[in-house]
Amino acid sequence: MSSPSLTLPSQERPAARRRRLLEILGALAIAATYVYLVLNQPADITGGPGSASALIALSGFLAGAVLLIAAVLPTLPASTLVLIPVALVLNIVLGQFVGSTLVPFYLDAIGTVLIAVLAGPAAGAATGALSSIVWSFFNPTVLPFAAGAALIGCLAGLAARYGLFRRFYLAPVAGFVTGIIAGVVSAPVAAFVFGGTSGVATGAIVSAFRAMGDTLLAAITKQALISDPMDKAIVFTIVAILVYALPRRARQQFPFLRRHRVLAGKAPAGTTEAPAQGAARDH
């Protein structure tokens, strides 16, 4: 993809099909695990640790995330690949800081969303999953959230692809919607694997719903629906600020930005389309 060989016969076709299969399998594993957990509403959720559902949630979500990484990673161009470690560090540094403070937010996806906007949904999904796996070297508790992080990256990339970052006020809206979906998918992990949330502030919100008599899964899902959409709206806004602040030379490394006219501003040279709407925000 990055340097097509001009002399050797291409081996792309079967490899691409195999990757597509891995991608579909990964997405299926994540979806099936979620559907199983929610439909079965395992009765042993508060029946003591070591519950089978914790193991199912762990293995299903992890397997899906690993399949997605295996499918996407080989296809990324080098300019995206070298950005992934940078994104992971941004996730970890900012997430570690916010995670333990008394704010019911996480802000641990800035790097993932940044990659997704610069390089597309596939790169975003791989970055999200990789981020959880590498971060687990310092903090093993983020490992089970790999599938949720992959979903956030994928949705952020789709939002960028369909032009939601072209207008400044649409970015937080896209983040809000992403947060709703990601929160609902991540809630079973928090409920079954941890039996709660890892922050004190989020724990307080869950406690409030438990006090009203909700089941643990319902309480954690509601907490996720309060925290996640706001959190992702903030993250998407921060990323929009960062991307628009990038100098044009840095942006030009990313064909995804040009191909789908992700950002507002003048149409880049080489396209015949009319300039994008309104204020050119180029620096």
Partner: peptide, 24 residues
């Protein structure tokens, strides 16, 4: 140090959550 940074907030959160509110 690393384990405490993870487990202390998690433990506090779980104790508050289940210690005070456990309808079952």
């Amino acid at each position: 140090a690393a384990a405490a940074a993870i487990l202390v907030p998690l433990g506090l959160s779980l104790l508050m959550l289940h210690g005070l509110f456990f309808p079952e």
